[in-house]
Write a protein that binds this DNA or RNA. Sequence first.
DNA 1: TTGAAAGCGCTAACAG
DNA 2: CTGTTAGCGCTTTCAA
Lengths: 336, 336
Amino acid sequence: MNNSNITIYDVAREAGVSMATVSRVVNGNPNVKPATRKKVLDAIENLGYRPNAVARGLASKKTTTVGVIIPDIASIFFAELARGIEDIATMYNYNIILCNSDQNKEKEIHLLNTLLGKQVDGIVFMGGTITEEHVDEFKRSPVPIVLAATVCPDDEIPTVNIHYQEAVYDAIKLLVERGNEKIALVSGPLEDPINGEYKFKGYRRALEESGLSLNEDYVHVGDYTYDSGLEAAEKFLSLEDKPSAVFVGTDEMALGVIHGAQDNGLNIPKDMEVIGFDNTRLAAMVRPTLTTVVQPMYDIGAVAMRLLTKFMNNEKVEDRTVILPHRIQLRDSTLE
Amino acid sequence: MNNSNITIYDVAREAGVSMATVSRVVNGNPNVKPATRKKVLDAIENLGYRPNAVARGLASKKTTTVGVIIPDIASIFFAELARGIEDIATMYNYNIILCNSDQNKEKEIHLLNTLLGKQVDGIVFMGGTITEEHVDEFKRSPVPIVLAATVCPDDEIPTVNIHYQEAVYDAIKLLVERGNEKIALVSGPLEDPINGEYKFKGYRRALEESGLSLNEDYVHVGDYTYDSGLEAAEKFLSLEDKPSAVFVGTDEMALGVIHGAQDNGLNIPKDMEVIGFDNTRLAAMVRPTLTTVVQPMYDIGAVAMRLLTKFMNNEKVEDRTVILPHRIQLRDSTLE
DNA sequence: TTGAAAGCGCTAACAG
DNA sequence: CTGTTAGCGCTTTCAA
């Protein structure tokens, strides 16, 4: 039954050894005579002994648990990231305490402290805007912290990202090369530097370099939801001079744009080309299928966690700022 | 900076009291003179003291952490459930250790033991098939376990579900009432009792009661993926006598069915009506929008977690098997 | 190769 | 209202 009350001490007695020896076999210490090891293993088996990780954590100051602060696990984007994190964590024998922050700064800082209180061995942090206060907290942390899919103004903090500006630049350039001169942008909230700083700048730079001017009517700021994509389409279609292509900051909003346009009788991509961002599974679940910038979410999570293990083991880390490659996956929402 | 080394003992000295008193104020024990409390609070502030939850856990035998075993957090369905769980957990001041099981029995049992080793105060379990071995483990657990969106053959194990058979029955009946006589089924893997037992039986019973016979050609077993929905459509459309309606076990597969049909020139719902299951956000992200059975994932998670808190607090629980209501959300993939 | 003993940082009686 | 004192179950020197 409830075997949670049997301790290392009980095993020691049952096996006729000291608890130190039991500890050794439990921890795979080689300095134990095979015969002794067997006795102990048998006792463990008989008693149904299960080591108490909390006690172990207190004594060893390691919990083999890492904290994960994520904006919203229900988001298809972050869920994929989380899976990458968890898989690698499991591989290295860590468990994960998962916390949703809703990108709320107070919550984020509070969660950070809760996790540190729980003595996690490290933290993977995903968020929107990283303020100085965030950075201070990160630096004050007694355990390593790695940011995933989150840009940080301070480059001493380890991060794993793709090159957002470049990625958007590439997408816009592609549209330009295909003859588009009226290219709209549906962005996520500009307060998030990934949108306001990186993606937007990529858009602007690509237009400039192509000799195209930035038309404010062609910029719509959404809130990441499908519905805001729908709205963006409505807005663009109400324009005198409609855009011939639109780049959308996330796939979910891109689906909204596509459907909004189709609901108004447009043909995608003939009447309007659409490019999304992220390459979530959604991209294959629309008609036409969505051309999109591939952001390897799972890999970002996996690499961030791997990086964290290095810090936790005091391994040498050559580069604390890792940039993963991106590319554009052509599908049917763009011509040709 | 790194304040993780300062302990309750340091605070006690700084405040000129005993550690017991510090413990009292940290834990909100009212038996402390206000003046003393203030001294302690100041000392805590000055030193930047942060209680060590691991030590606390060892001493109190409570970790305020619950384990969550989930098939795949990257699934839109489970991610929503997880969010419900986490929100309520946070509300009751618990953190969550999240583990992906991929519905693999060995992994599930192993994770269970890992979590128990970490001394979680309770566990929310989501899975597919629950075997006797599972039930044994659940019953052997020293802490309460609640199953969410997971049917269990043994009804002593607390569960939170909707009435799957009834839900499917309702959907099929609706199709019948609208004049359909050739109703196909796209199911998830039949090994999962939710599919093989409950949903399938709902389908069969509705047909029987409507005087319709079950046609094997009209049953396709998918694997929950969009692509398997696509395949199902291909298969149905290759039939001599094509179905006029199809009920699909999950929304994602339903999108596949819709697109598969459209890719073959069919008009949904005119040529074929489609009903999905779950009412994930996907249901609104297709054209036509998807009529679907509403399974309140978030609520299931939330209620399961709430139930777990009751067990953890030894509160009276009237009903360990809770059934949440379902309904059908009519959209455009069905006629009228 | 094994054991003894001192903590890890905190809670929880029990006194006072 | 406050302090003393045992542990909680395990790891980790240090000796043997």
